[in-house]
Design a protein around this nucleic acid. Structure first.
Length: 363
DNA sequence: AAGACGGGGAG
DNA sequence: CTCCCAGTCTT
């Protein structure tokens, strides 16, 4: 269709004068590239930056990452979201130690089999570390290419993915995969931005089909929309002057392996009367003991990509800690920093603890 | 093919 | 509010 080498050249020229200075640029260590790419999955550069620096400082290589407990890896991921990324990072570090003698595999398809590494990340690692000609097709690339060629095929379908990947392969100067991939993503991130891009200064305005047709706003095309469900979380903060009673979320789902107060989840809004009639409540707080409940936080809205959850925090006072609390993890207040917690717990602890030193270490 | 999985920032 | 971010895994 066009002179593809023209695009590659033009893109790289643009990149050389517009690129941002980022800590994972100009690095050829596959480990560091891997960490940076996983952190940046569905995450903005500005948000991931401090996590990257802190993570690399604590886990400078595969061996150091594989050698710790998952809990510590999650602690360094606390607040970033999509926690399966951290769990998979840890798991894959162990796999590389066990199966590949601690050396990061160099074959694309071997890398692709590792947990938490998909096509995008495998392409990033192989192209950035070894200049292998695999295209990095991320959100930036989807957007840029969909506009440049006015592609109506939805990007969130198998067909769309394949189409854009093929296009990126054809556009790429195979001998310059590393800089081409950096350039095309940077272009999408800085010039061909999602909303109101300044097309008047774009290097491709003379050939961009969407710009020529005045249809830039229509691209990229998406087929699916995530539907959002509302849920209600009722937390119990057991009163104790110098301890917290926590549970680890073991089940698959939101916040797996993170710590939180004993919790009753519900699809519906419940007042205290209804709550106290649930099986879980009666198990934790049997009638033979005297309790006093105080509602500290009411209807706290917490938004996830696919859920809106409303949280209630009850503080529980009692004469003596009953045996039914033995299943909870009793954590010294001073040691809360060792336990990975989600934003909602951080919010509550920040509210009730007079000194924010308890949760300040990782912020 | 469709949904699950966080959190934050921009408009 | 809505959209989207250097996506991947599960069913």
């Amino acid at each position: 269709m066009k002179d593809f080498n023209f695009f590659s050249k033009k893109l790289i020229t643009w990149y050389s004068s517009h690129k941002r200075n980022l800590p994972w640029r100009g690095i050829y260590d596959p480990y560091k590239i891997w960490i940076s790419e996983v952190i940046l999955q569905q995450t903005r550069v500005t948000q991931g930056l401090k996590y990257y620096n802190r993570f690399i400082k604590r886990f400078p290589d595969i061996e150091s990452l594989a050698g710790v407990e998952e809990q510590e890896v999650l602690k360094y991921w606390q607040g970033l979201g999509y926690y399966s990324r951290a769990r998979n990072l840890h798991r894959t570090a162990k796999t590389i130690m066990d199966k590949y003698n601690g050396v990061f595999p160099k074959d694309y398809y071997t890398i692709l089999k590792l947990k938490g590494i998909g096509e995008y990340t495998a392409s990033s690692i192989t192209s950035f570390a070894w200049n292998m000609p695999h295209p990095t097709v991320d959100g930036n690339v989807f957007r840029f290419l969909s506009r440049l060629f006015a592609i109506d095929c939805p990007i969130d379908t198998i067909k769309g993915k394949n189409h854009f990947t093929e296009l990126a392969i054809q556009l790429m100067d195979k001998s310059k995969a590393r800089i081409f991939n950096h350039a095309i993503m940077e272009f999408g991130a800085l010039q061909c931005i999602p909303s109101s891009p300044d097309c008047t200064v774009c290097s491709f305005k003379s050939v961009c089909l969407a710009y020529i047709n005045h249809t830039v706003v229509q691209y990229p095309v998406k087929q699916y929309r995530t539907k959002i469900k509302e849920i209600y979380f009722y937390y119990f903060h057991i009163h104790d002057s110098d301890h917290l009673y926590l549970n680890m979320r073991k089940e698959k789902g939101i916040w797996q392996n993170l710590f939180e107060f004993p919790l009753i989840e519900s699809d519906i809004l419940m007042d205290f009367q209804q709550l106290s009639n649930t099986d879980q409540f009666r198990l934790w707080f049997p009638k033979k003991h005297i309790y006093h409940f105080e509602l500290i936080v009411k209807n706290q809205k917490h938004i996830l990509s696919h859920r809106i959850l409303y949280a209630y925090f009850y503080k529980v006072f009692m004469k003596r800690i009953p045996n039914s609390f033995d299943t909870f993890k009793k954590v010294k207040l001073m040691e809360i920093d060792k336990y990975p917690i989600h934003r909602l717990m951080q919010f509550y602890l920040g509210k009730i603890l007079p000194f924010n030193r308890f949760i300040s270490t990782f912020e």
